[in-house]
């Protein structure tokens, strides 16, 4: 039997652990691109990856830009060949914005600050500790990596039954309702945007995977890098299992909330409000 994708991801992770980035890793790893913010973070060594999203910092950045800041979304969708269908019914999104009210429907409060209520919140896969999507998948095409808790997606095994979409309580999963290559050309003039990232066929589900391919190379997820680049620093990625990590420090210092914690999914995304 040849290597399957899952094994490949594991080996790639191990290789990075021992500093053995493959040729592809060196090709893409353009010198000088390394952001200062990731110094001191052993990105490829996490035991339980998590993200802390500072809504205040994000909103401050949104206010600076008259169209609102979408740098993280643009970076992610470019890095992962996510096409723009121009139709909210069939759109594919790994990371996106929705209002606070929609993002946290369990925090129902008609008198919450007007400011916050309609403001955009950054959303993506929660990489749950107890992911319902993984539980229901009939082919193990979506699975949780035991070594670091990332909920991965094998788009080349998925049969497109969409059971995971019914199971995910966060709307974090997108289905390729059409062939990504047939997405409107005028919206996607340079598609595929990243030749180094696999393309997929129609009829499979996809979602945020915390940039497994980047953290295997010791890089931060594309969204975090993009946010740091514009010095907004609203997204912090780190290891929840390490008591001295950047994310644990933020969680210690701030009051944070998670989406729908009552469902027992244990999201690994935390929001500072």
């Amino acid at each position: 039997m040849g290597l399957d994708r899952r094994e490949f991801l594991k080996i790639a992770g191990m290789a990075a652990l021992f500093g053995l980035g493959g040729k592809a890793a060196i090709d893409i790893f353009a010198p000088g691109e390394l952001e200062a913010s990731m110094e001191g973070i052993p990105v490829s060594k996490g035991k339980r990856w998590a993200m802390v999203i500072d809504i205040r910092k994000c909103l401050a950045q949104q206010a600076k830009d008259k169209d609102g800041c979408k740098q993280c979304i643009i970076a992610c969708h470019r890095a992962h060949n996510v096409p723009d269908w121009g139709d909210p019914k069939i759109e594919i999104k790994w990371i996106w914005q929705d209002s606070f009210e929609h993002s946290f429907p369990d925090q129902h409060n008609p008198y919450i600050e007007e400011e916050l209520r309609h403001q955009p919140v950054i959303l993506m896969c929660n990489h749950c500790v107890n992911p319902p999507c993984v539980r229901v998948c009939p082919t193990q095409a979506t699975f949780k990596r035991e070594e670091d808790g990332i909920v991965c997606m094998d788009m080349h095994r998925c049969i497109g039954c969409r059971f995971c979409m019914a199971a995910c309580p966060y709307g974090s999963r997108s289905f390729n309702w059409g062939n990504p290559r047939k997405a409107p050309k005028e919206l996607n003039p340079d598609y595929p945007t990243n030749r180094d990232y696999p393309e997929r066929c129609k009829g499979v589900v996809e979602k945020c995977d915390f940039c497994v391919e980047r953290i295997a190379r010791g890089e931060l997820p594309a969204c975090v890098e993009a946010c740091d680049k514009i010095k907004a620093h609203a997204l912090t990625f780190g290891d929840l299992a390490d008591p001295n990590s950047n994310v644990r420090k933020l969680l210690k210092e701030h009051y944070t909330i998670r989406r729908k914690p009552e469902l027992g999914t244990e999201p690994n995304l935390f929001y500072i409000v």
Partner: peptide, 20 residues
């Protein structure tokens, strides 16, 4: 199914935790 040609994956990768 979005990808009917892969239907046999259900048998190739049997997954008892999936109700499907």
């Amino acid at each position: 199914l979005g990808n009917p040609v892969r239907i046999m994956n259900v048998i190739l990768y049997p997954t008892p935790n999936s109700i499907l």
